[in-house]
Design a protein around this nucleic acid. Structure first.
Lengths: 232, 232
DNA sequence: CGCACCTTTGAGCTCGGTCAAGGGGCGTGG
DNA sequence: CCACGCCCCTTGACCGAGCTCAAAGGTGCG
């Protein structure tokens, strides 16, 4: 079996980290990619593991979580096909700072630190792309930090839903489906609140016709309504 | 007047972004550096400005703040000599996402995006260094995001003081001075709380002998005491 | 000396976290 | 196909950490 299919080629070409690379570098990266599969509930890596690989999700859904010293968990990101994770391997960090768990059966391509660092050494474009990716993360978390510090739960949850919709939204006749199987608990871990508060807010918004709230399934019926909640 | 002194040379060599660069690149960077001065209360850049320059603080103190859509401000970082700011100019972002204000009379060296990008194109080491810097930011804010989402005010403020001490601490016979003129208000904006709560906690800690709390001046007498508060 | 701003302290209140209980959907195994 | 059980979700009641508002010292600078 070849290590990748025609689909994988598309995925590499569509990933911002690999934009504008010379063909020989792309070929090299394709050759050094290793496919990895994890069943639902499996881990690509766990917080504290030695940091060895970067991943590009091909199929499935995963979540990135971080555990506090007292066991409180937060959900940093929930990702679908085409998303990178473990980008931190491009730095000199020794341990995984987060955990990557499959929400569904998932497959990813993966590269070792050495492969990527070699590429970065040879190809400034790659290093600069990586810089963009890192900077986007830093920006996102700065922004979420501000929201958490200054905004009420209702707004934060509205922002969370809108962000999820923009990252993993699928257009349906009824509205935009958030195409990730997230529980109330997990939404709470993203927005910085509890499952109970999430449940109450979603129920309220559903009764106002803003959303449809099902089991691990949310459809946003009136995005502009949510936006006005999120912005005040 | 020459554009930089012997001190400036030391500063470049000591900055992680410029580590391990070939001598000709370093020389080029020294040549393209532009000194900038701001009085207390002045701005190096403001949120929303066109993003043009990166800065390296040579003397003085500055704070990096972000303004929410409703005018709520948070303080992201407070920096002393040797610190970089405006690193985001290395990306393709068009606007400053934050404001940099001088807490004291301050001077910095600055470079344009073009100068830096040229350097990154020629020199992979520079691009990789930049990647480390960005990654460190992303990590820090991920961590602070988790703290804000999961920890009580008391712990967050303890963490904030310890972080400030590690970044801008000066050893004194009585303890570690946080060498930044921060008000209770500003500490609150860093820890995600109000000036009132900060004041109450500092008073309490002072009465326990953990710290000395003066006007825009804090000395940590028993770091390990604060650590045990911060960690539980 | 006076003013601006930093800091403290008290009183009251509210958002949202905690705890407890119960309903419901889905998958699995019989 | 049905039944069981696990997990997800909802709802109510309570309550407490910390925010808000108000007022009154301090402190340094012009």
């Amino acid at each position: 079996m070849p290590p990748f299919s025609a689909d994988d080629r598309d995925i590499l070409a569509e990933t911002s980290l690999f934009q504008d690379l010379p063909p020989e570098e792309l070929a090299q990266l394709r050759a050094s990619a290793r496919p990895v599969h994890r069943p639902r509930g499996g881990y690509f890596f766990m917080q504290g593991d030695p940091l060895e690989r970067m991943y590009l999700l091909v199929t499935g859904r995963i979540k990135i979580t971080q555990l506090g010293p007292d066991g409180q968990q937060i959900l940093l990101r929930a990702l679908g096909p085409g998303s990178l994770f473990g980008v931190v391997v491009l730095t000199q960090a020794k341990e995984c700072p987060v955990t990557a768990e499959a929400l569904e059966d998932s497959t990813a391509l993966s590269w070792t630190r050495a492969d990527l660092m070699d590429c970065a050494q040879r190809c400034p474009t790659f290093a600069l792309n990586a810089l963009q990716v890192m900077a986007a993360h830093a920006q996102e978390f700065q922004e979420r930090f501000r929201q958490l510090a200054t905004e009420r739960v209702e707004r934060r949850l509205a922002h969370t839903l809108l962000r999820l919709a923009s990252q993993a939204g699928r257009k349906l006749p009824e509205g935009v489906l958030i195409d990730l199987p997230l529980t109330r608990q997990e939404l709470g871990e993203m927005a910085g609140t509890t499952q109970y508060t999430v449940s109450r807010l979603l129920t309220q918004w559903e009764s106002q016709g803003l959303i449809y709230a099902g089991r691990e399934r949310i459809i946003i019926r009136h995005p502009h309504g949510l936006v006005s909640l999120a912005e005040g």
